[in-house]
């Protein structure tokens, strides 16, 4: 009886191994020879997730790589969970991730740059820049930036300004805006862009930051008014919206949307990914359904330029965060 049980166990084990090897081992050929895991370090439904799924769809449709990208959400810790996951995949070219500025700011604000840092990843390409718009309700008393600033001057810290948590881009941008305009706002942090827009529409906030894809459809329906965009130039897709600079407040801030790969991958592999991303940004579907539809600024940078750009940005953020007292 005892013997037969061991036999059963042994047989099963052998079968398990054989079966899994048959499934698991793949003929090694040129990179990529199997699907690539595309990590989104945020929950489904956000801007990063939308971008990743759009990219995966275009890769699929236009056969940019012989293997598909499989979008995987690894949300948590404002992106740090997904980021640390990719960091552990040293030398594995089958893991890439979407990158937004949280990749730079979160390690700084949480004081974890020693364990979590973008230099522990491989920058592949910068794809686009997203805009920040200054938005009020349609029936708001503030018709333009000047009126908003004057109201804030008259009564400091009373205008309810909504955005995401302190230390995030929204809050940093608010602080810069307030500093340059010489005013103070009552900044109220929320969890997501959707919540901020809801609170604005419901009359719980006076003014908020929103990305164009959140703001434009509300503007067309005359629910909100966009006072300005935090760019030096007016947007091509929305030429009627003035810039903050035109209003005498020289604030320029854009959200970087890019792609990272795991650390320690081979140069050849990096080049394959780089080329694929270039091809993506040249595709008409990308230009029309993603860039134009979301009012983004297309901006391609290859691995090297992107790395340099990140380095500069990090220094810039550091200085700003120090100035704002978020960093010591």
């Amino acid at each position: 009886m005892k013997k037969s049980r061991f036999l059963v166990a042994g047989l099963t084990l052998v079968a398990l191994f054989i079966g899994m090897f048959a499934g698991g081992v793949l003929a090694k050929s040129d990179y990529p020879s199997r699907p690539i895991e595309f990590v989104v370090p945020f929950n489904p439904g956000g801007g990063s997730d939308n971008m990743a799924r759009m990219i995966a769809a275009i890769y699929d449709k236009e056969r940019i790589l012989p293997q598909p990208l499989v979008v995987v959400n690894k949300a948590g810790g404002s992106g740090s969970v997904g980021m640390s996951y990719v960091q552990t995949k040293n030398g594995d070219p089958y893991v890439i991730m979407t990158a937004v500025p949280q990749v730079l700011t979160v390690p700084l604000t949480t004081g974890s740059t020693d364990v979590l840092h973008w230099t522990k990843l491989t920058p592949i390409a910068l794809l686009a820049l997203d805009e920040f718009m200054l938005v009020v309700r349609y029936d708001s008393p503030y018709q333009n930036v000047k009126e908003l600033v004057n109201a804030a001057k008259a009564a400091p810290k009373t205008i309810k300004f909504g955005g995401s948590e302190v230390g995030s881009e929204d809050s940093i941008l608010t602080d810069i805006f307030a500093q340059k305009a010489g005013v103070q706002f009552n900044y109220i942090p929320f969890k997501s862009g959707g919540e901020v827009m809801t609170a604005l529409l419901g009359g719980h906030l006076d003014v908020v930051w929103a990305n164009p894809n959140e703001a434009m459809s509300q503007m067309e329906a005359k629910k909100v008014r966009v006072l300005a965009v935090a760019n030096r130039e007016r947007l091509k897709g929305a030429p009627n919206i003035p810039t903050l600079k035109e209003n005498g407040i020289d604030v320029h801030w854009q959200m970087l949307r890019g792609i990272f790969a795991a650390p320690g991958i081979k140069d050849a592999e990096r080049k394959v990914l780089e080329k694929a991303m270039k091809k993506l940004t040249d595709s008409p579907t990308w230009k029309k359904d993603f860039i134009e539809a979301n009012f983004l600024t297309p901006k391609y940078m290859d691995s090297k330029a992107y790395a340099q750009f990140l380095k500069d940005k990090e220094a810039e953020y550091k200085a700003i965060l120090k100035n704002l007292g978020v960093l010591k």
Partner: peptide, 24 residues
């Protein structure tokens, strides 16, 4: 697979075929 194999062998007696089948 190992988990199922172990528990099916320890908790209660099952037929050979059952043990192999379920663990696989």
């Amino acid at each position: 697979g190992l988990f199922m194999l172990f528990l099916m062998l320890t908790i209660e007696k099952h037929s050979w075929l059952g043990v192999i089948g379920v663990s696989l």
